[in-house]
């Protein structure tokens, strides 16, 4: 087991008699190489939860284990944890600060105390992983387009060679092509064995890639299931301010109209097959 989250809680007012929990008794575990989506609307506690995994926040109660070790324990090497568990915050391009893209991506490896050649080698590898054009390595990160800035920032995390990559709303504010690019990068990384945890409120993004979905609402983990199971419960999703992909609603509509279709379908590709099957084509 790579990561184990055991009954964690988080509250901003621990002294209060009935504290309000931002994270409320959440438990789950992550196996190596998984592709997990964490969804929930703003304020559901998902952003707090992922900070536990990186040791940036300590849970008020409960524990987080990384390879069996409690990350909140005294003397635990947080620096190594943060390198092994890469956390890409929302709008990561706002963390760029160096004069060139390459130098910026080197920042992580530099903090790990690696020699200069190794820093650059890792930076270049990371940049190629996110398909960042080599011609722009020496450009100022502030002169890049939105999508490229985002990819450079993600490379900044990848250069530390994390085992787990957590991305908080990595597609926010990008155009359809930019969104697709980032999601493809995530899938490629996952194919190479990196565990990916994708935090999102876009069901369409999640449906296509994730094999397991965690749904948060008001600090509680209310689903931990494969996508077909979660999306077929679209009524519940709507109650908590989320929705299933449009395709799921099509299948639901067809079912109601008397077609014998499966309703646990959530991508365009699968829906097409299913509808064609019913129509006998």
């Amino acid at each position: 087991m790579q990561i184990e989250v055991k009954d964690v809680c988080y509250t901003y007012t621990p002294e209060a008699e009935q504290p309000k929990f931002a994270v409320d008794h959440v438990s789950f575990s992550v196996e190596e190489g998984e592709f997990i989506a964490l969804i929930g609307h703003t304020g559901s506690g998902k952003s707090t939860l992922i900070q536990f995994l990186d040791g940036l926040l300590k849970p008020t109660s409960g524990e987080v284990l990384f390879h069996g070790e409690n990350v909140a324990a005294k003397g635990y090497d947080l620096k190594t944890l943060r390198q092994k568990v890469g956390l890409v915050f929302q709008y990561p391009e706002y963390q760029l600060f160096e004069t060139t893209v390459l130098k910026d991506v080197c920042y992580g490896p530099k903090n790990m105390g690696l020699p200069k050649e190794e820093q650059e080698a890792r930076a270049k590898e990371a940049l190629s992983l996110v398909r960042f054009p080599e011609a722009s390595y020496e450009k100022s990160p502030f002169d890049l387009s939105g999508g490229r800035k985002r990819r450079a920032a993600i490379a900044g995390i990848l250069a530390m060679k994390p085992e787990v990559l957590i991305l908080d709303e990595p597609t926010a504010g990008l155009d359809p092509e930019g969104r697709e690019d980032i999601l493809n990068v995530c899938r490629n990384l996952n194919d190479q064995g990196i565990t990916v945890i994708l935090v999102s409120h876009s069901m369409e993004d999640v449906a296509e890639y994730a094999k397991r979905i965690l749904v948060m609402n008001q600090g509680k983990l209310i689903y931990d299931a494969p996508p077909e199971k979660v999306f077929s419960d679209w009524r519940k999703l709507e109650e908590i301010g989320l929705s299933a992909p449009e395709v799921t609603y099509v299948m639901e509509g067809l079912r109601k109209a008397g077609f014998d279709v499966r309703t646990d379908v959530f991508t365009v590709e699968k829906a097409k097959e299913e509808i064609l099957r019913v129509f006998g084509k």
Partner: peptide, 13 residues
């Protein structure tokens, strides 16, 4: 706060 956390995630001390 946000930037600080983002840089800490990159190993800043």
């Amino acid at each position: 706060n946000k930037i600080m956390k983002a840089q800490q995630a990159r190993g800043a001390d």
